[in-house]
Design a protein around this nucleic acid. Structure first.
Lengths: 339, 339
DNA sequence: TTGTAGGCGTTATCAG
DNA sequence: CTGATAACGCCTACAA
């Protein structure tokens, strides 16, 4: 029972040739209805299953797509992957997951082994410290579609799917201003990543457009964790002119900030407002729900998959990279609702 | 540049045969150091990369493992997958992710396509409503290792990796009793899943062992979401003898319960204690952190991967299924800390 | 030490 | 409509 049956087995049984079996099974070409049915029936009977590996070798298409993320168990990435999988699976593709742990060497290794595995495409969010770009070139040279999502890098031939980080930050900051906040601090991430740079720019522009002074002291760059939120507040509240609001580029930092502010006896949102970024699940569950920006990860995944499928279809023709920008959503919750 | 170079290309360039190239690259067999170096050098120069598909077809090993879960973006599953990936990747395996959405048909389809894709193993958590088992048999018949984690089902030949659900529930309940709770309710899930059944049994046994009456009214079966927690509390608090604690088989239900209890003005933990299950990230971030049971998902994933590797190694020999039980951890937080 | 030949399971191209 | 044959890229007896 455990032996695999091939089209040869079917052919032998029917005293025909494997080629005919193949044709019958793919009900293509010209083939008599009689033998077609005969073949299909015995195929079922013999429990025949097509070996996709052989097909892949022959056709050069593995129907596998590599997805590379820093960590798969970060909510945002998991959701994106979900979107990718749900879009690609019905089209017959499988999704191979790889993690880089934010380590560039792993990113490079991963890309190499995925290429060796003959994936039909690579969808990824780059590692923080990427300096090298030759591994990306290698993907493109093999004519394999490469798509960046969220964390992008401007490389010719690479498609990107992102949200409007600038505008998202702009609207979050504007929202804080509308709440009456005058001294809005911004906690950012590593500017080596474009997304953090753009969020900062959006924040700055919103201040300018509303006639608020941009204060360098109000901008901090930290890691994305709770501890950083604690420290950031410690720094900010020691300033001569204490801020009355924080727009954070990450939810964990926002959470940490809130925790420390409460310890200091600051009332939120009455005296201090906070907005985070990412719409992590916990932001909505808190007793004090945290305002945040939803990055629409599911749509992002679906869109990245669609872009891949598009590129796939047009392979051979000139391949034009796509730059898709999705619209994020500011979710106003209690942490920033004075009014 | 975009053309792939094969061992034939190298052979031609060097006026030797592909077989020799193959041997040199695998630096196996007897081969002169001279030609070995020559081959390796030109391989690098020509940017040769082994085509794993061809290898897979030839050897019958794809070095791909299928992982099937209900949803990839549920924290628990994402963490398990992370564990699997981190264990398997260094061994040269890739992980193919599939989601069932709790739908049995998708589970069956997924298994079929994974088998067609010639995966070397399947690691999965079954869908809630699985009645059929023939698709599992099909995996075993193909001599492909099959491993269940968390949600298991007793099938000969299938290895399982789970936590000690019974004991976890027992210790959670005991903890509540130690806090002085006398009327402990239990919110469970669908008993078609063994895990929920066992958690219930553990709860019941703990009551008995401590001389507390088991009250049928105190046990509810619900879905795993916040809304269910609301409803459950509504039901429980209408009883003549209201409970003074809840042990929930899920964190979302526990959260919902807490929300509703607060609305009703019940003080937690002073007058009412709550313990959840799963250690979802949010349980620890709440202003009122929720006690819960950590299912050690990372270890679970690693262990599942190890079991697979073990089975893989012993393929051919008699394959003995492994039943691994990991030790979970009760995390006592404020929601159940009276003392 | 190296070359030859065959096969892994399919499909595609040509004849017939 | 169907049968041969070759090819996808690699490995591995067997022969030289």
């Amino acid at each position: 029972m455990s032996e695999k049956t091939t089209i040869y087995d079917i052919a032998k049984r029917l005293n025909i040739t494997a080629a005919t079996v193949s044709r019958a099974l793919n009900n293509s070409a010209k083939i008599s209805e009689a033998t077609r049915k005969l073949v299909v029936d015995t195929a079922v009977e013999m429990n025949y299953k097509q070996n996709k590996l052989a097909l892949a070798l022959k056709s050069g298409k593995s129907y596998n797509v590599g997805v590379i993320v820093p960590y798969i168990d970060h909510n945002f990435f998991a959701s994106v992957i979900r979107g990718i999988e749900e879009e690609l699976n019905p089209k017959g593709y499988h999704v191979i997951i790889c993690q880089t742990h934010e380590i560039e060497k792993k990113e490079i290794d991963t890309i190499n082994t995925l290429l060796n595995a003959q994936v039909d495409g690579v969808i990824m969010s780059i590692s923080k410290l990427s300096n090298e770009t030759s591994h990306f070139k290698r993907v493109l040279d093999k004519n394999v579609p490469l798509i960046f999502f969220d964390r992008k890098k401007d490389i010719p031939g690479v498609s990107t799917v992102t949200i409007n980080d600038f505008e998202a930050a702009y609207s979050a900051t504007t929202h804080l201003i509308e709440q009456g906040c005058k001294r809005i601090a911004h906690i950012s991430g590593d500017w080596a990543l474009e997304i953090y740079k753009e969020r900062f720019e959006g924040y700055k522009k919103a201040l300018e457009d509303n006639g608020l002074e941009f204060e360098k002291e109000y901008v901090l760059q930290t890691k994305s964790n709770i501890e950083s939120g604690h420290k950031a507040v410690d720094v900010l509240m020691k300033l001569e002119y204490q801020p009355d609001a924080i727009f954070s580029s990450g939810d964990y930092v926002a959470l940490g900030a809130i925790q420390r502010l409460k310890e200091l006896g600051v009332r939120i949102p009455e005296d201090f407002c906070v907005v985070g970024f990412s719409n992590e699940p916990f932001t909505r569950f808190m007793e004090l729900p945290i305002s945040s920006i939803d990055q629409v990860p599911l749509e992002m995944g679906q869109m990245a998959a669609k872009v891949f499928l598009e590129q796939q279809k047009n392979s051979g023709k000139v391949k034009i990279e796509q730059k898709v920008q999705l619209t994020s959503q500011l979710l106003i919750r209690k942490s920033s609702s004075k009014l």
